[in-house]
Amino acid sequence: MIRTRAVRWRRGMVFALPGLWVLAVVAVELLSPRGTHLVQLLAAAPALACAGTGRRQCVVLAGVCALLALVPLGSAGRLDTAARLGTCCAIVAVAALAHLLTAGRRRLMKELERAREVAAAAQRTLLRPLPPRLGGMTLAGGHLSVSEGALVGGDLYEALATPHGVRVVIGDVRGHGLGAIGTVAAVLGSFREAAHDEPELPGVLRRLERALQRELGEPSLGEEFVTVLLLEVGSDGLVKALNCGHPWPHRLSRGSGRRVRAAAVGRGDPLPPLGLFPLPGRLPVARLTRLAPGDALVLHTDGAEDARDARGEFFPLARVLAEAAPVAPVVPAAVVERVRTALLRHTGGRLSDDMALMVLRRDRCRVAGPAQRPGALTSGRRESPPYRLEDTAPL
C-alpha cells in the first residue's frame, strides 16, 4: 500500500511539474524588479511536458506559453514586440522539437515492448512453468536471473510424469544470463525426450551428455560444463538420484508435533559436471531417501547457497527453509516465494549468479484394501484393487 501511494505521488508530480514551472516563471516575472527578463524560461515547460507525460500536454502547454510570451507581464512589458515575438518563436520551436523526439521515443518503446513480449514467450516455452500437481505430487518452482530483463538464465529445471515415475532434472550451466540459453535449451530438450524413453536413470544422463556434446561442438576443455541432478521418485516415495557436480537437495519432513525440520540429503561425492570429462562406464544410482506422505524435497542451484550479503556472509539456506515451512503440511509455492524473498533481502537485490529452486511434496500413498478370505469364490465382477490412492495433504 505504501509503495502504491509513492508511485501515485511520483506520477502526480510528473504531470504537475510543467504547470508548476509555468506558474513559477509568471509569478517571478510579475514580482521581480524592473530589468529582469525571465519570460524566456517558459520554453522549458513544453520540453518538460513531452519528457514526462506525453505529446498532448506538450502541445497545450506550448500554446499557453506562447500566448504568455506575447502578453506584456511585469518587467517583460518593457520588451519590444520583436523580443516578444522571438521568445514566442523559441517556445514553438522547442515544443516542435520535443514533440518529434517524443514521437520517436514512443515508437522505440512500442518496438521494445513487442520484442520483450516475444522474448518472454520464447523464454516461457524454454523454461515452462511447472504443473501444480504431477504424478501424486505437488510442485512449485521459481528462478531469478542475474541478467536484467531476462526471465531465463543459466539455470534449468523440469519435472515429468513418466511410466518409470516422476523424473526431475535441475542444472546449472557455466555462466549466466542470456548467453547460456542455448545450452539450457539443448539439455532440457534432451531430458524431455529421454525421460520417457529410457527405462533407467543412467540412460537419461548419457542422453543429456550426448546432447551437450552436440551443442558445444568441439571439446570445451573445461570452459563449458553443466552441473546436473537427476531424480526419479517412485510411487512408493523412493527417490533415486544421479548427481553430476550439483548441490544435494534438502528434505522437509515432520518432526515433533507439526513442526517441520529441514535436513540435507545425499551421500558420497557426485560425478564431475557434464562437459568436463566423459561419463564413466558405470553410473551408480544413489538411493537418496524415501519420502513419506506429506514430506517435501527442495532442489536448488548453487546460486542460493553461494549468495552473499554486503558483509560477505553466505545465505543461510537451511535455516530459511525451516522458517519458510514452520509447520506441516508444507506448501511448495509458499516455500519458493519465501526463499526467493529472503534471498533478495539478504543480497540487497544484487545477485552474483542465477538461482533456481524446486519444491516437490509427496501427496499420495497406498492404503491396503480388504483382504480376500481364503477359498472365497470370485464372481464375474471386477475385483477391487489391493490399494487406493488418497491425498494426505490438502492444497
Rank of each mutant, 00 (worst) to 15 (best):
A122C: 14
A122W: 07
A122K: 05
A122R: 04
A122P: 07
A122F: 08
A122G: 14
Q123T: 10
R124V: 02
R124E: 15
R124Y: 09
R124C: 07
R124I: 05
T125R: 13
T125D: 12
T125K: 02
L126C: 10
L126A: 03
L126E: 07
L126N: 11
L126S: 05
L126H: 05
L126K: 04
L126M: 05
L126I: 13
L126Y: 06
L127S: 07
L127G: 01
L127F: 06
L127R: 01
L127I: 14
L127N: 02
L127W: 03
R128S: 15
R128I: 02
R128A: 15
R128T: 12
R128Y: 10
R128D: 14
P129K: 00
P129A: 12
P129D: 10
P129N: 05
L130D: 00
L130I: 00
L130G: 02
L130H: 01
P131T: 04
P131A: 12
P131I: 04
P131E: 08
P132I: 02
P132W: 05
P132F: 00
P132H: 13
P132V: 09
P132E: 15
R133F: 06
R133V: 09
R133M: 09
L134R: 01
L134I: 03
L134K: 00
L134G: 01
G135A: 13
G135M: 00
G135P: 00
G136N: 02
G136A: 06
G136C: 04
G136W: 00
M137Y: 13
M137F: 11
M137R: 15
M137C: 15
T138A: 14
T138R: 15
T138G: 09
T138D: 12
T138Y: 06
L139R: 01
L139E: 01
L139Q: 01
L139Y: 00
A140H: 02
A140D: 01
A140G: 07
G141E: 04
G141V: 11
G142H: 10
G142D: 14
G142M: 09
G142E: 13
H143L: 08
H143F: 06
H143C: 11
L144D: 04
L144F: 06
L144C: 10
L144Y: 04
L144M: 14
L144R: 14
S145R: 12
S145P: 08
S145I: 04
V146E: 10
V146Y: 04
S147K: 12
S147Q: 15
E148K: 13
E148Y: 11
E148C: 11
E148H: 12
G149Y: 11
G149V: 08
G149H: 12
G149P: 11
G149K: 09
G149A: 09
G149D: 07
A150P: 05
A150K: 09
A150W: 05
A150S: 14
A150H: 08
A150C: 11
L151V: 03
L151M: 15
V152W: 08
V152T: 13
V152N: 10
G153D: 07
G154E: 11
G154C: 13
G154A: 10
G154W: 06
G154T: 08
D155N: 10
D155K: 04
D155F: 06
D155T: 07
L156C: 11
L156S: 04
L156V: 06
L156I: 10
L156F: 12
Y157A: 12
Y157S: 11
Y157W: 14
Y157M: 13
Y157P: 03
Y157Q: 08
Y157E: 04
Y157D: 08
Y157F: 14
Y157I: 07
E158P: 07
E158S: 14
A159F: 10
A159L: 10
